[in-house]
Computed example of a mutant assay.
Amino acid sequence: MDPLAQLQDIQLPEKIHNYPLAIGWWIIAVICIALLIFISFKIINYKKSRRLQQKAITQIKSNNTLNTADCVAVLKWAALQYFPRENVANLYGNNFHEFLLEALPNNHQEEFKNLSKDSLQTMYEKDLSDSDNISFQQASVFWLKHALPPKTNSVTNQTLMESKR
C-alpha cells in the first residue's frame, strides 16, 4: 500500500468573520459617537447664544450715522434679550450706564468708561459732535462683544439681580 494514496487534500478552515467585534471596539465607538454629539450640541448652543449679539453689532457697525440715542436703543434691545426685563426696561441715563458697567467683566470696565465718557448724560444735548457719536458707537460695540452673552454663574449677574430689587 502506498502511504501517499491515503493522504487527503488539504482542507482550508472556515473563514473568520469580522463580527462580532471585541467589546473594546464597541466601547470606543460609543465614546466617539457620544463625543461627537456633545461637541455638536455645544457648537449649536454657542451659535444660538451669539446670534442676537452679532445682530446688534451688525446693526451698529452697518450704519455710521447712528447717534447716541440710536446706539442706546440697540444696547437696550440687546440687554433685554439676555437679562431679565424687569432689571433693564426701566433704566435710562446714569442708571443705564451703571448697568452697562456692571454687566461687563471687571477687566473691561475701565476701557468702556473711557470710550463712553459721559455720552449717556449728554445725549439729550443739541450740539453733540460727530466724534462723541463715533466714540459711543465704538463703546457700544465694545460692550456688545465683551458683556454678551452673560456668564451664567458669574458674580456680575448675581450682583445685577440683587442691586435692581
Rank of each mutant, 00 (worst) to 15 (best):
M1H: 12
M1S: 10
D2N: 12
A5K: 15
L7N: 14
Q8F: 13
I10Y: 12
I10H: 12
L12H: 10
P13Q: 11
I16N: 05
H17K: 08
N18L: 12
Y19F: 15
L21S: 13
G24M: 09
W25C: 11
W26S: 15
I27L: 15
I27D: 13
I28Q: 15
I28F: 15
A29Q: 09
A29P: 03
A29F: 11
V30R: 14
C32Q: 08
C32S: 05
L35E: 08
F38S: 07
I39R: 11
S40N: 10
F41K: 08
F41C: 04
F41D: 05
K42L: 05
I44R: 07
K47A: 03
R50Y: 06
R50N: 09
L52I: 03
Q53P: 10
K55N: 08
K55M: 08
K55T: 04
A56K: 06
A56L: 09
A56W: 01
I57G: 01
T58I: 02
I60K: 03
I60V: 09
I60Y: 00
S62F: 02
S62K: 05
N63C: 03
T65F: 00
L66G: 01
A69D: 08
C71G: 02
V72Y: 01
A73D: 10
V74G: 02
L75M: 15
L75K: 14
L75D: 07
A79M: 02
L80D: 05
Q81F: 04
N87R: 07
N87M: 11
N90H: 15
L91C: 13
Y92R: 14
N95I: 02
N95M: 08
H97E: 15
E98P: 02
E98A: 09
E102I: 01
E102Q: 06
E102L: 12
E102S: 08
N106A: 14
N107E: 13
N107K: 14
E111D: 09
F112G: 01
F112N: 06
K113R: 09
N114P: 00
S116C: 05
K117S: 10
D118M: 13
D118I: 11
L120N: 03
Q121A: 12
T122H: 12
T122S: 09
E125N: 06
E125G: 00
K126R: 14
D130H: 06
D130E: 06
S131D: 12
S131F: 07
D132T: 08
N133C: 10
I134P: 00
Q137P: 00
Q137G: 06
F142N: 04
F142W: 04
W143M: 00
W143C: 01
W143I: 00
K145M: 04
L148T: 00
L148K: 01
P149A: 01
K151E: 07
N153Q: 11
N153D: 09
S154F: 01
V155Q: 10
Q158P: 00
Q158Y: 00
T159I: 15
L160H: 09
M161W: 14
E162W: 12
